[in-house]
Simulated assay, not measured.
Amino acid sequence: MPKLDRSEFKYNAKVFEKNCLWCGTLYFASRSTAKYCSSTCRGYANQAKHSEEAIPYDETDKMISALLSENAYLKGQLNRYILENEELKRQLGEQYKQRNES
Rank of each mutant, 00 (worst) to 15 (best):
L74A: 04
I55D: 05
I55H: 12
Q91P: 02
Y73S: 05
P2D: 02
V15P: 09
N85T: 10
E17H: 14
N71R: 15
D58S: 15
E53V: 09
L88N: 03
N71F: 15
I82W: 03
L92D: 07
L26A: 06
E87D: 11
R99T: 05
A34I: 01
G93D: 10
A48R: 13
S32T: 07
E59N: 11
A72K: 15
E94I: 14
D58L: 09
A66H: 15
K49V: 02
N100C: 04
L74N: 07
A34Y: 06
K10W: 00
N12D: 13
T40L: 06
N79L: 04
L83I: 04
E52D: 06
E70C: 08
A54N: 12
N12K: 15
K89W: 00
L4I: 10
K18Q: 04
G93H: 09
Y27W: 09
L92A: 07
N19G: 04
L4V: 11
A48M: 05
P2C: 03
C20Y: 10
N85D: 08
L68Q: 14
D5H: 12
S39V: 00
L4A: 05
A72I: 02
N46C: 05
E101A: 03
S39P: 04
S102C: 02
E94V: 09
I64L: 13
K14N: 06
A54M: 08
K75P: 02
R31T: 09
G24F: 11
C41M: 07
Y11P: 09
Q95D: 03
Y44E: 00
K18W: 07
D5F: 12
Y27C: 00
Y81H: 14
K89H: 12
N79Q: 13
N79I: 02
N79G: 00
L74Y: 14
F16R: 05
I64T: 12
K35D: 00
P2I: 04
G24Y: 12
I64P: 10
L92R: 15
P56N: 06
K97M: 07
H50K: 14
L83T: 03
T25C: 04
S32M: 05
N12F: 13
D5N: 11
A66G: 01
I82Q: 13
A29D: 08
G43F: 10
V15M: 07
E86T: 02
L78K: 12
E87T: 04
P56C: 09
L78Y: 14
R99E: 00
A45S: 11
E86K: 13
V15G: 09
S32Y: 11
T60V: 14
R80M: 05
C23K: 11
L4M: 14
R42E: 09
Q47I: 02
R31C: 03
N71V: 01
A48P: 07
K14F: 13
W22D: 00
L4C: 14
G43N: 11
Y36K: 05
Y36N: 04
